[in-house]
Design a binder for these strands. Structure first.
Lengths: 195, 195
DNA sequence: ACAGAAAAAGCACGAGCGTGCGAATCTGGA
DNA sequence: TCCAGATTCGCACGCTCGTGCTTTTTCTGT
């Protein structure tokens, strides 16, 4: 890896953290330069525009999510065990991976009304993730753990709602009971989906 | 109502719409002045600081929410009918009340990591709303519609998750099936809670 | 070790931000 | 009708933003 690529990677790692805390718009080139000990123009040269920086930052987040959640999920045994593995790693992602909360949630709120490449990228991520959840639920159907007539898209929707509730309750309210509520809702959802 | 109060009210109505679309930080005094046909300084004089403007905007949103959701809910007959009324009005709020989506969701994401009066106000709103949902669920328990051993806080948590899922799916993905999924999850939740 | 390329810095710009202040205008009660 | 107070405006400030340039420093392959 060349020096330039290494620097860029380091910048993006910092950027993901900042975007997580304050969002993609408040992620400022000056602040990012200061935090990484670079000059504004030196940093800027790596991206050529703020929008490119934002897109690269989002992409870096997606890579991290893949490593922390998707890969371990696919490594788990098919069926309900894989569903539970997915949930647990997702929970870790929401809780520990980023100091400022999930950047996909942050990004969704920031760009849901603003057309452009950022919105498009977020939509793609979201669709992929929704389908991934449905697919994992599908393996649980195939293995006979879940009901054969389960609507996996509906399952995906419900599971995401649960995690959103966790995100908001844990982050804004700092409610220590958030985790218990989330797990309780998961069990209820799993019970309603089981064969 | 004096001229000043009328102007301030008109400003805040506009401000709620803008905050809904772009958030509280990107809600800019210059832009707000332009949109209301005032001068920056003339508008600014009503608030004396940007933070006060943000707080007043949030408060205006709270009033609207009270009118559109809380009052109609309390006017409905106690029990599961009231729960359903709350849900339907809440859905209208999420769908039609603001062009840019619920400002409490937007605000939560923006301020969950930033201490200060805005965060405090958002936390208060959120806690009040959570408790309100639990209370309404409690009347359904009292009326015998819901199980006597229902955990109303858990119910509140689950219902909020559902609405968050609706918010994200409808706003970012513009998924026309979002509404169906939300109603289906509601029925599942009601069934699991019923006596 | 050195030349050419890549990376980083320095500096400047125009624009928009929040905010202050004095002047102009408007409003409403006596 | 008039005037005190409320309301709005014009203008300016210091700051930070994203983004071009030119120059300097650092890498890298031979």
């Amino acid at each position: 890896m060349s020096k330039g690529q290494a620097t860029k990677a380091a910048i993006l790692d910092e950027a993901v953290g900042i975007a997580s805390r304050v969002g993609f718009n408040a992620l400022t080139i000056g602040q990012l330069a200061e935090q990484t000990g670079m000059s504004k123009s030196g940093l800027f040269a790596h991206f050529k525009s703020k929008e490119a920086l934002q897109l690269d930052t989002l992409e870096r987040g997606r890579e991290r999510f893949t490593d922390l959640v998707i890969r371990p999920t696919l490594a788990a045994p098919r069926g309900i065990a894989r569903v539970r593995t997915m949930f647990e790693h997702w929970l870790v992602w929401e809780t520990e991976a980023l100091e400022g909360g999930c950047i996909f949630v942050t990004g969704s709120i920031e760009y849901d009304d603003q057309p452009g490449p950022m919105r498009d990228a977020l939509v793609r991520n979201q669709q992929d993730w929704s389908e991934f959840i449905a697919t994992v639920a599908g393996t649980a159907v195939a293995e006979g753990d879940f009901r054969a007539d389960l609507d996996t898209a509906q399952f995906s929707f419900a599971l995401q709602g649960l995690m959103y509730a966790y995100h908001h309750t844990a982050r804004l309210l700092r409610d220590p009971k958030a985790l218990d509520h989330t797990r309780a809702s998961l069990e209820q959802l799993l019970a309603a989906s089981s064969a």
